[in-house]
Design a protein around this nucleic acid. Structure first.
Lengths: 335, 335
DNA sequence: AAACAAATTGCAAACGTTTGCATAAATCTT
DNA sequence: AAGATTTATGCAAACGTTTGCAATTTGTTT
């Protein structure tokens, strides 16, 4: 780094034109003659010039930055380690880049509770993508009603004043359960916390499928973590023995926790207990037995999230949207 | 959002003081009388005021933003899904927040190759944290020699002009191998690509342990993914049968791929083949059998990364640093 | 009570872009 | 060939902070 950072004015002097011209040329403004544009762009490249984003953000009042907030409830610890959450952040990153936007990563622990203020008023970002509804939607609601451009990854069927993009959780729960039934399971456990928005929909789907089959539902309510699932199933086995022959788990990580408890007692999967997870994380395919799961189309969802955010930025009003899901049939439910 | 965004000048008018005073008060500058400071800070809170970061970044030439680049090689696909990479990003995020910094997430696919230019000259960020060395360090080297404040998560023993923070990979490889030997394994496979910086150190540790035990080394070189590991082990079994009784895998995900191939052929873990992974991701504890692994202290490493970056920002020169590792002994290696 | 020092506050210039408007150059009409 | 268009460029003001310096107020000393 030899010398002081070049600025627009320096470049202009070098080229013998005004700063306006350089500015326009670099932004590919058709007001400037094509030939001049090319020349100036080359000059900029040659001198390793790049615009000072602070200055241009100040002037244009736009940042081209989107804040992504990983929304965890303080108490129930679906930890930041859940591969699924992180996977979706990765996908969102890709989707944003495709639209020339950058990603400011944040989480619900920092940044206080006033998102409108912290991210938008301060011009840190143009809009917000919230990953996960959490148990309380208060922060989201507050930001949305403050007029912040905002989209949420969550359960699209939740009534809300802001657009939610997410999987058809009801259908997912239903398909998974019907699949277990079709494979001969009679006593199917729902493993997860129905107090959580997305999971409550999965639970509804589970219930409807169970009822239609005239079976009896049974819920084991636990946090969305493997270890909670492990403990939950263990405890159930201790107290009541093997009183079930199927599990619909609210996430793959939860399913793996359950699997461990079962395997330790030499309960065969899928023969004694059939199992379906949710999310289809990479591990589902590589575990043994491999885990049947409801696959969420995170890639498509991410693109939709970004599109809806952009639509809001141009003043359009947008609706929640469901993205399709798919049952991935593997060994854990096959018999 | 009722009215136009408040600015410093508006607040000043409300309070009957100058903008300088408000600015200083909000930044807790001791030049301003404590009483005035309190009053103005309350006023700001009351009106939901927050500073325009674009303006203040322009004026101060500081952003308080750090770019985190996930550095994947285009070809060898240690995909963005590897939970370990994402875990460390989470930890870095926490560490940055602790120091009042924000995290701009990026990856080596976007942002061109000229990081100095794209992130620093453009004043998008004050410094860069690179996660992963990848196979080629050209981009990192270029940015570092352009004078960019930069730290890398990788193998600290790699000679470099920039500071690298990471685990003692040599020791990790050695400990894992010695542990397998101590548990009676005689023919231990190294599963991973020694062309990769961190893994080459693990490989060295493996080699030294093997040689000291007068055993013969055997490397199965594969990409850092479960599926590559699965295929690799499968192929080996097909071609040569069960010619090994221990595996030191270069990552947990790789170990799981190997486990799957073994389990499918009813090869017992740990009795027929003992196995140790690397990273200690959440899944290691929840798999069955649970996976012994070398645990990297990502939390401590993240704090160190940030501290070293801050040190650079204040002009100090900093060195690479090793963070301790730990063997977590679980079922997969126990006999 | 005057003279001085210390503690507070205000003035005004910068930070580096973008953009409405005015101007200059090139092209087209008749 | 002179006016009327069209095309291309330049001028200068604004975006909202921060900060060196000057100015004011307050407190201290003789």
């Amino acid at each position: 780094m030899n010398d002081r950072k070049l600025k627009l004015a320096d470049l202009a002097k070098l080229a013998g034109v005004s700063t306006s011209t350089v500015s326009r040329a670099l932004n590919d403004n058709p007001l400037i003659k094509q030939e001049t544009r090319d020349k100036l762009q080359q000059l900029a490249k040659k001198h390793n010039f790049s615009l000072n984003t602070a200055a241009s953000r100040l002037r244009t009042q736009k940042t081209n930055v989107v804040a992504v907030i990983i929304n965890l409830d303080g108490d129930t610890e679906q930890s930041i380690n859940d591969p699924f959450l992180l996977k979706i952040v990765g996908e969102i990153n890709l989707a944003l880049n495709k639209f020339g936007l950058e990603l400011l990563l944040s989480n619900s622990f920092m940044a206080s509770d006033d998102w409108a203020n912290y991210f938008i008023n301060s011009r840190r970002a143009d809009g917000i993508i919230v990953v996960g509804q959490g148990k309380s939607q208060a922060n989201i609601e507050a930001a949305a009603s403050a007029g912040v451009p905002l989209v949420v990854w969550g359960d699209p069927k939740t009534p809300s004043s802001y657009p939610i993009v997410g999987s058809d959780n009801y259908l997912g729960g239903r398909l998974a359960t019907e699949h277990l039934l079709a494979n001969g399971a009679k006593n199917i456990l729902f493993l997860g916390d129905p107090g959580h928005a997305e999971i409550s929909e999965r639970h509804r789907g589970y219930l409807d499928a169970i009822n239609e089959a005239k079976a009896t539902p049974h819920v084991v309510s636990i946090d969305i973590t493997s270890s909670a699932a492990y403990k939950g199933i263990n405890q159930l086995l201790v107290e009541k023995g093997l009183c079930f022959d199927g599990i619909m788990a609210c996430s793959d990580m939860v399913a793996f926790g359950a699997m461990k408890a079962l395997k330790e007692r030499y309960i065969s999967i899928p023969n004694d207990v059939a199992l379906v997870g949710f999310d289809d994380i990479a591990m589902a395919d590589i575990s043994h037995p491999s885990l049947s799961s409801i696959k969420q189309n995170t890639q498509r969802a991410s693109v939709i999230l970004v599109e809806k955010l952009l639509a809001q930025l141009t003043g359009q009003s947008v609706e929640s949207q469901v993205v399709e899901i798919e049952l991935v049939n593997r060994q854990s439910s096959q018999r």
